[in-house]
Every structure is written in C-alpha cells, then in structure tokens.
Design a protein around this nucleic acid. Structure first.
Length: 459
RNA sequence: GUGGUUUUAGCUCAGUUGGUUAGAGCGCCUGAUUGUGGUUCAGGAGGUCGUGGGUUCGAGCCCCAUAUUCCACCCCA
C-alpha cells in the first residue's frame, strides 16, 4: 500500500535551485554581519515553554507550537493530578501538564536566555548573529509560513545608539548587495509611551500601538473607529488623530511635544531619535523614514524600533524588523543589560528576490564543468580516470553512470543540467589517448589530450 | 482561532444543464539518425477528476465532512 506523500500546511520543500538561492541570500547577510564583527551562535529548535510563554503577548502565546511530553504522558497526568482531571478540564489547564517544551517563535528570546545562562563567559558588549528556522502556528498565506528562517543580529550589553546605527548599516549593506530597494522605517517606543500617557495611561500603549500601526492599511477613520471600540476616550482620540496627521518626518517632533505635554518619556525618545539620525546622516544609502505610526507588535521593545519594507514588487509586507529591548534578560535573572537587534525575514526576502528576478544568473548552474560520455565499459573506465584527474585539480566533473544505447541520452543530461562541456570517449579516442571535447553552447568539438584539457578547463 | 476561495495528466489549464470511452498545449518515452543534444516529422505512455462519505438509473459537475492552496480578519518575518 502506498500513501499519498504530503507535508504539513505552511511548510515547504526546497529544490536544488531554491536552496542555492536561499544560500546566496544567507551568505550576503552573513557577510554583512561578519564584516561588522558579529559572532555566530546557534540554539536548539526547542526551548522550555516557560522560556517562551509570556514574551510575545497573548496572541504570540497562542501561536507557539507545543511539543508533547515523551512517554505515557496521559497516565502521569492522571496519577499526579487526580483531583483536577475530569471532563471539565480545559485545554488551557491541560496544556502545562502534557507539554513542557515548545518550538522557538523567534531568535531574540532564545538569545536573551543564552546570554543570561552564559553571562560569566560572554565578553560584553556581545555582538552575535544567528540564522535558523523559527515556527509559528499561524494560518499560512503568501509570504506567511509556519516554518521560516530568521537571520538575527543583536548587540547586547551596551546602551549606545551607535549599536542601532551598526545594525541599520547591516540592513543597508545587505539590501544594497541584493539590489532590493527598501525603506527603513524608524520610530521610538518611548514616544509612543508618551502618547499613551498623554491619553490617560501607559496601560493603553499596546491598544494604541496596535491601532495606529494599521493606518497605512485601513486609513485614519477606521483606526479612529477601532480605538473608540477599544474604549479610548474622546479627548485621547483627538490627540491620536492629531498625532497621526503629522507628516512622517523628524520635523513633527515639536508638534508631538505639544500633544504629549512634554513628558519625560517623550524627551528621552526625542533625544534618542535625534542622536540616531545624527549617526545615520550621509552614512546610509537606503531611504530612511521616521514614521511615528510604526509600532511593532512584539512585547519586549522599549526604545528604538525599526522595520524594513521592500519598495518594489507586490509583496508589501515587512521583510525585516527589530528594536531595542531594555529588560528582556532580566526575565531570566540578568539585570541592567540592554540590547538591540534586527531580524531579516529570509523567506520573504527570497520571495521578493524571485519576483524582482534579482538572483545572479549562474546561481542555478551546476558546478560541473564537464561530463564524460562513452559507449562501452572501456570508455567508462577511461572517463572515470579523467574525471578523477580533473577533480584532483579542482575542476568539478562527472562521468555518466550508465552505458546507454544512444549517446544522445548522455548529452541530454548535460544539456538539462547546464553542464558546459562534454568529453566523448570512444574507440578512436582510446587508441589515440585523447578526449573529444565538445562545447555544448556552440556545438564545436575537437580532440584534446588530458594535459591540454586540464589547461583549458582550469582557466 | 473566524469568514471566503482553490484542487482535473509531470507542468499550465479546458471540461456546456448531471448523461456513452475525461481533453489541449508544453514536457516525457520511442523511431526517422548503429559515434553527437537544442529544430522538424511520425508514433506512444501517462488520470481512482485532492481524500472519504452521501443523493441519483447515472456524479469531474449536486450535498456533507476532511485535507490543501490562496485571500480577508487576527497578528506578523
């Protein structure tokens, strides 16, 4: 009985071409990080659920993949929790009894956990990069996957805004080298906090942030409606409206100062934003946009926040984002350590690259320079010897593995895989100790000795 | 998690009101060519119509469930 093969929703296989393309993007990102002094780390796919829960907000917790405990977990639940196990037990109550591990949701929280665990051996400020898959139990759409790769760079253990600059510079370098036109949007959570305070309470920050983040998508009026539904008071709505009507520019800071009644949080945010812009000044080619409506969902950001959007193509989703987090490691018992990080969304970047056709042409070609073709066992052995000799000199080559009735089958193989040369070995070639070298592009062919062949292909 | 949408040959897709043996293009295989690919010509293989139920004399088409694709919410890389 055969079974119809399939993979889970929201996951994908990658064929040879796709893997080469993804590795190309990964190497661009890695080069930028390495060039700026970042060091690589890797962390496990699974973390303890206690490490992950509560870091991403309620919605985030729901999107965590949980890993079922090993062994006869149900029996253990019944034995150890007899008093609460009955038909009324909710899934939410049951969950901690049967799952202690979960798949990581991002790379930042595992990194904070890593830093807290290894604080005594890490040299601060610590600059690390990490490129690994993450998992979210989201409903998939285009550009939205359940398994996708993030490429994170973080600098932890330093308050300096120079770090923010370094990371934005990485963004700039990567997207320049990939030739994707982008807008890097910048804001500061402290300014949003000031707005929330001016609207009544810092508790409103999350609601307001989620609301105003949607302005580009649904428009001012709808945002106002939504905020009203969430119970924001009328005077506050007016403030938010005035805030959102301001131009996307650093010039709007003065007006925001009025709206926020010049509170302390605002002043700090303003200073940080201005200092960052001073660092960026004339040092970055990508377009930078100060966007006060930029909010970002993740719960742990406290200062600078950034998001990268592709300026071309139909995929207008963000292809990267990040920000500063002051208190993330303190959750794991390491206080007074501030960090800032960015993330590249590899899968979406690849989607954009595909649409814009920005991959280098030779990326899809096989490495193989030459395929040896033959008619019989003697030719096969000679072909094998030639192949091994070429490989020893660093020239990638192959012998066709099967003796075929027609040599066209072997040529078809070379054609289909974009192998530029074939070396044909028949009776004549064996007698004269030569190889008939044929360039598949032009169809030209002539006889070479192995020494001349090495010279020709080694160029 | 809510609502909608998609699925027919390896690929891209037709398929009328429920009616005989489900089609096309491309690709693939064989031959025209016993040592040479890309063009041309001739022939050929390949389908449980996503899966499982149901209605019907009869289902690719109608109904239910489920999976998958894409989309809008929610949220996000």
């Amino acid at each position: 009985m055969s079974q119809k093969p399939s993979i889970p929703q929201g996951t994908r296989d990658f064929g040879p071409t796709e893997v080469l393309q993804r590795k190309y993007v990964l190497s661009c990102i890695e080069n930028a990080f390495k060039g700026a002094g970042f060091m690589p780390i890797e962390t496990p796919s699974m973390e303890n659920l206690s490490t992950l829960t509560g870091k991403y907000g309620n919605e985030g917790d729901q999107l965590l993949y949980k890993v079922l405990n090993s062994g006869d977990f149900f029996k253990k639940v019944v034995e150890n929790n007899a008093q609460i196990v009955d038909a009324n037990l909710t899934s939410k109550q049951l969950l901690p009894l049967i799952a202690e591990k979960g798949l990581r949701y991002d790379l930042t929280v595992p990194f904070a956990r890593y830093v807290a665990m290894n604080r005594n051996t890490i040299q601060f400020p610590f600059k690390r990069y990490q490129m690994q898959p993450v998992w979210r139990a989201d409903r998939p759409q285009k550009g939205r996957y359940r398994e996708f790769w993030q490429c994170d760079g973080d600098i932890i253990g330093s308050d300096s805004l120079l770090n923010e600059f370094e990371l934005l510079y990485c963004y700039d370098q990567v997207f320049q080298s990939l030739q994707i036109p982008v807008t890097i949007k910048i804001n500061n959570r402290k300014i949003l906090s000031a707005l929330a305070e001016a609207c009544g309470s810092i508790e409103l920050l999350h609601t307001i942030a989620i609301g105003i983040d949607k302005i580009d998508k649904i428009g001012l009026e709808k945002v106002m409606e939504e905020l009203q539904k969430e119970g924001i008071q009328d005077y506050a709505i007016e403030k938010i409206k005035a805030y959102l009507l301001l131009p996307k520019s650093i010039e709007s800071l003065n007006a925001i100062e009025q709206i926020c009644n010049n509170n302390a949080s605002f002043q700090k945010g303003k200073e940080e934003l201005e200092e960052l812009l001073n660092y960026l000044n004339n040092r970055i080619k990508s377009s930078i946009e100060v966007d006060f409506s930029l909010a970002r969902g993740l719960g742990y950001y406290t200062g600078t926040i950034v998001e990268v959007q592709a300026n071309a193509g139909s995929l207008k989703m963000s292809i990267g984002g990040g920000g500063r987090y002051d208190n993330l490691t303190s959750i794991f018992g390491l206080n007074g350590v501030s960090g800032v990080g960015i993330s590249f969304g590899l899968d979406r970047i690849c989607d954009v690259m595909n649409e814009l056709n920005k991959y280098p042409e030779n990326l899809t070609a096989k490495n193989t320079k030459i395929l040896f073709c033959y008619f019989d066992k003697a030719g096969q052995h000679k072909g094998l010897d030639c192949t091994l000799e070429l490989r020893a000199r660093g020239i990638a080559s192959e012998v066709f593995p099967d003796i075929t009735k027609k040599i066209s089958k072997q040529l078809d193989y070379a054609n289909a895989l974009n192998i530029p040369y074939v070396g044909i070995i028949g009776e004549t070639e064996i007698e004269t100790n030569t190889i008939m070298l044929k360039a598949l592009g032009t169809g030209n062919q002539s006889a070479y000795t192995i020494t001349d062949l090495i010279k020709k292909l080694g160029q």
